[in-house]
Simulated assay, not measured.
Amino acid sequence: MNVSTSVLRRLNIEALLRHAFTSGTFTAAEAMEATSLTRATVLGLCDELTAAGWIEEVEDSRTAGLSRRGRPARRHRLRSGAGLVIGVDAGRSGYRAMAADLRGTVLATGRRELDPDVVDRELRISTVQDLVREVREASASAAPLLVTVIGIPAPVDTHGRSPIDVGTFWRLMNSGFPEHLDGRVVVENDANLSALAEHGQHLEANMAALLVGERVGAGLIVDGRLLHGALGGAGEMRFLETVLQDDIGAEGVGSLARRWTLESLAAGRESPLLAALPAESLTAVDVFAAAQAGDALARDVLDRIGERIARIAAILVSLLGIERIVLAGAVASSLEPVLVRAREVLPDIAYAPFPELVASGLGRDAVVRGAIEHALTRLREDPLELLESLEPSASP
């Protein structure tokens, strides 16, 4: 086989695999229309990819009740169990992993909680290694691991690199995972992955996902494309300290809930519920619970957080034309009182049109779900990556 024929054959297989990834069950005619390949080529590749285990033949059109006359059409679909993808959320203290098949069906999950004050590079690497091994084994899948996507709380460029000249935290978070894990490994910013997870559930060309835990980070999708920027800096919120002219900067809901509650108590505000809790163990969960119970101090704190979220939303809308902002993270399910206040404030500080402000329904799984979505998207866009795992007899 000459080189040009080999290249053409790879491109044909890529086209058919891309169609299999993005469709459900398909006939040869449907594949021909989507790929512009001839009928003979489609049928030949279907037989080859079925033998290789990447697609499977299902009941024909007559058996499926889709046709009554003429010769029944053969039907194929991607074999979901042909490959495995793994997503990891390697946070500052919380670590989550998920294994899924090629349709995105979750097969296994795992998690760890570590003290961030004692975590070093080696412990981060070994924790992620253990989690990947754990979910791969628990998935009970013998399929090849095609790609592992790891989300980290640091800016990441399109090559998986973080800035190395801004303190030590980002260097610690981006601990060189690809060198310590098997197969293809992709490193991405956690807020970006949250945006991809939300985008997968609600297709919106211009949207943002705000991770609002201890810090605020934004994943930005503009004109349907995820933004990275130079050194992965798109969505970094350190500019808030300058723009909003305070020392709060990119503090998130967890940090602000503690800060403003303790400041109010120190100033003499009364709150029987919150004053009874040790200051060192106070959490955003406590403040949200107190607000729900009618505590005036806690309600004021949530209003202040809502006002800050509104200002962040106003900035994103003005600069990028964002139409939908999803607040994600562990506290997302409790954020409606904050969002109510943010929606009230927006018309007073910004110009229409105003963005839709909603809370994520993914909870703590937003980042790891986004990692799975990112892995599958990469395979849909470039299924030639699959070909490297094909048996020699089936490879072009």
Rank of each mutant, 00 (worst) to 15 (best):
S271R: 09
Q292N: 05
R258Q: 11
S333I: 03
A332K: 13
A257R: 08
I322E: 03
L320H: 14
A289E: 10
M237E: 03
I309S: 10
I221L: 07
A250L: 08
E280G: 11
A276H: 07
L297A: 10
A266G: 00
E307K: 13
P272I: 01
L339D: 02
R215M: 12
L227A: 15
V212I: 12
L220W: 14
G233P: 00
A342R: 09
A266E: 12
M237N: 07
L277Y: 04
S255W: 04
G252C: 10
A314H: 07
D300Y: 02
E241V: 05
G268T: 02
I305W: 03
A342P: 12
L226A: 08
A352R: 13
L256T: 05
E344G: 08
G232R: 12
D348N: 06
L297V: 07
S318H: 13
V212P: 05
I325D: 04
E344S: 13
L226E: 03
V216C: 14
V212H: 00
A290Y: 11
G233W: 13
L273P: 00
A332C: 08
E270C: 05
E307S: 15
E307M: 06
V326A: 06
A291T: 00
I349E: 03
D247A: 13
V331I: 11
A298L: 05
E263S: 09
E236W: 05
